[in-house]
Simulated assay, not measured.
Amino acid sequence: MGDTAFMVVADSRSSPRSGDVSVTKIGRRWITVFDGRQERRFDSETFGIDAGGNGCWAHLWPSKALYEAEVRRQAAWWRLRCLAEYKTAPAHLSAEQIERLIETLRAPSEAQPTRHE
């Protein structure tokens, strides 16, 4: 143990806070960390906190850089979703460009099989 992770915590009483934590134990089901004040337990698959129903939300990340990259990714996705809510296609995009966007966004499991000739 002794590894460092990055934790983001939010609850209904205060604004979100984040910071580095020390990993104290890694088990099959739980990862336990120490944030300088208390130990917290996170699910080893979802990396969500074991809050015990107290209204606290927290998530564990391998690093601050990975957390910040995901925040940027989600913000970009939100901007894209807002743009896609036009009732008609944007005039500057051709049908081919829109179809390429669809293929790019299609989940890997939904992708059409590639034909090998």
Rank of each mutant, 00 (worst) to 15 (best):
S14C: 06
A107N: 12
E39M: 03
G53Y: 00
R73K: 14
L83F: 10
K87D: 13
V71P: 09
E45Y: 03
S12H: 11
T4S: 13
G52R: 00
R37M: 11
G27C: 09
E68M: 08
A95V: 10
S12I: 05
S18C: 08
P16Y: 04
T46G: 07
T88I: 05
A65N: 11
V8A: 05
W30T: 10
L80R: 14
V9M: 10
M7F: 00
R100Y: 08
Y86W: 09
R115F: 11
R29F: 08
R37P: 02
G52F: 00
I26E: 14
D3N: 10
S63N: 02
A95C: 05
A51K: 00
P62W: 04
W57M: 07
R17I: 05
T46M: 05
S15N: 08
A10K: 14
D11N: 15
F42S: 00
K87F: 01
S44I: 02
G53F: 00
E103W: 05
E110A: 14
P108M: 03
S22C: 05
S15L: 11
T114L: 15
K25M: 06
G53Q: 01
A95T: 13
E45I: 04
L80G: 09
Q38R: 13
L60C: 06
A10D: 12
H92D: 13
I102M: 10
A89Y: 13
D35W: 06
L101I: 13
R72S: 12
W61S: 02
A65V: 13
F6W: 15
R72E: 15
H59Q: 14
Q74T: 10
V21I: 09
A69L: 07
S22R: 10
E45C: 01
